[in-house]
Design a protein around this nucleic acid. Structure first.
Lengths: 336, 336
DNA sequence: CTGAAAGCGCTAACAT
DNA sequence: ATGTTAGCGCTTTCAG
């Protein structure tokens, strides 16, 4: 069906090698023959077969991004950073949605072994450190966003969860809150664990006793936040602020409050995490923590490409980026 | 670096052909040899090279999804439907983000020509009908979601924008509204055009004169909705309801109202489109139009795979699916 | 049931 | 500056 390089060569009256040269490096060819070749290419609408090219060159110029859940804007922002930087370096980016399933992550990681992808970026993977290291040990190129994996060949980028959690808490404490709820994501997630740790440390720093009944687990989704709030209300214990482990759950808090007629921020302050695109459009605008998502994606893919190119250990492997607390209407209310 | 089929064959004491048979069809092989082969495969951690396989078989089992913007939950829901159905049929799905740029769409479409993908699904493409038809004419497999393209080889699925727009309008009219704003997306988009058409038809059906000053263009994003509302408020003309061409813009309306102290729904009714995941969590919950997004993805990919398999015209090519108006708190208020 | 060998379409080393 | 050719790793006839 499709034209092959040999057809182009015949039409242009040259050899396949010359066609290849024109289409690739493009030096060492007369401009006259180049024109002949390009004419034939156009006329036959020739597109080099990627499989043949990949097989011959032992590379694909493809990078896979394995995201935990493309429904979450946190991931899609990062992906845009990856995409644009990779594109500038002639790599194509393919997004894979793991749908929160470790088996799917594992399945997509095999794209490295079967050489469908030259490299892969995992965003907050669910696979264990060991499993990911094992892949890197076999010589494949893999980078990770949202976690630090101790392996000399795995570039990592992440924010300090503990640090920004403490900042959030300091902000709420400064507003006069003492009974602060922490709405966790699913407890297995490393982000959950570290954000909780920051919450606890801040309490300790301020000599406020930890009350376990103020911590509820959600699932990083709106409904999980909503259900968790209902459970809290049912406990009939007083609290004046909620620190939700992400913005989606904070939205669930909004809903639960709306149903009970509880006004934000005067009756309840709310802070989320991730600076979801919609968070500034809700009423009141949601205070949240912003991570440089786009930049994180761009940095890590650049680092991955570097590594794929010279295939040697480079000094800068781990990047820790700062987050920024955005105080908006949902918590900007000094409690007397 | 990696083991090849010939290594496996040597280790198992068989020929490469036998290894291939074991790994593929798996019939016509003694269970004894199969075991030997599988053992060697495991020990060598063998993964067939995809490029070689693709080249030999002239297919990749890859399907590409070209989405307009993966930041928008409308697309990601559809993609999940595609993904899961394709997965069940042994196809891998790769998501490509066109970032609203026609050139990027075009670039990703070349994945068909270079045989990186066996087929491609475009979700609300920006390319012209002609351009898409041309690709199909060359024998490539392409399917479209969100638009009907008249071509015997292009499966299409979409909802009737005009129809549900009229339903939205009937609902608002039934609530007693007469001065209804229409907040359009970018005017070039076919969805914008058709939704506007429904708006106009509903007015006509009800003998309500069309007032152009009640129509504003947005960009399908929160900020566009917000800015459009500000322009409307500045006009100082009365209106009691807003029909926004999607939920994102409706959120911008919420923000604009919050800033002016306008209460939804009693001072202003708002209806969106798409049933974005977050729309039921905002306050008040947003009335919207639900499309069976997941199902649409699943149907079209199944149809595309059918076509790739028997490569012949099938009767059912165009699917029109019904949408459903979800009346929630933002418009459920009878005006006296 | 299994093996031998051709060939998918391209690039790169070598030759001219 | 251009052509010839081997071979990337696999599957699939065709033989046996």
């Amino acid at each position: 069906m499709d034209a092959k390089i040999i057809d182009v060569a015949a039409k242009a009256g040259v050899s396949p090698a010359t066609v290849s040269r024109v289409l690739n490096q493009a030096n060492g060819v007369t401009s006259k023959t180049r024109d002949k070749v390009m004419k034939a290419v156009d006329e036959l609408n020739y597109h080099p077969n990627a499989a043949a090219k990949n097989l011959r060159q032992q590379k694909t110029m493809n990078i896979g991004v394995i995201a935990q859940d493309i429904n979450n804007a946190y991931f899609t922002e990062i992906i845009k950073g990856i995409e644009n930087m990779a594109y500038a370096q002639k790599y194509r980016v393919f997004i894979c949605d793991a749908e929160n399933q470790p088996e799917k992550e594992r399945e997509y990681v095999t794209m490295l072994m079967d050489r469908t992808m030259d490299g892969v970026i995992m965003i907050t993977p669910q696979l264990s450190d060991e499993e990911i290291c094992e892949v890197a040990n076999k010589g494949y190129f893999i980078a990770v966003i949202g976690r630090n994996i101790e392996h000399p060949r795995i570039p990592c980028i992440y924010t300090d969860n503990v640090k920004f959690s403490r900042q959030v808490m300091e902000h709420l404490l400064a507003c006069g809150h003492r009974d602060i709820v922490f709405l966790n994501g699913y407890p297995e997630a490393i982000d959950s664990y570290e954000r909780l740790e920051g919450y606890l440390k801040a309490l300790k720093d301020n000599q406020i006793p930890f009350r376990p009944e103020l911590v509820e687990n959600g699932d990083f989704n709106e409904n999980g936040g909503y259900e968790a709030m209902k459970r809290l209300f049912d406990k009939k214990i007083p609290f004046s602020a909620v620190f939700a482990a992400n913005d989606e759950m904070a939205l669930g808090v909004y809903q639960a409050c709306a149903e009970r007629g509880i006004s934000i921020p005067d009756q309840l302050a709310v802070v989320g995490v991730d600076n979801n695109r919609i968070s500034k459009y809700v009423t009141p605008p949601l205070s949240t923590v912003n991570q440089p998502k786009y930049t994180m994606g761009a940095i890590i893919v650049e680092r991955l490409i570097d590594q794929m190119n010279d295939n040697q250990y480079e000094d800068k492997r781990v990047f820790v980026v700062d987050s920024e607390l955005l105080v908006r209407g949902s918590s900007n209310f000094a409690r007397k």
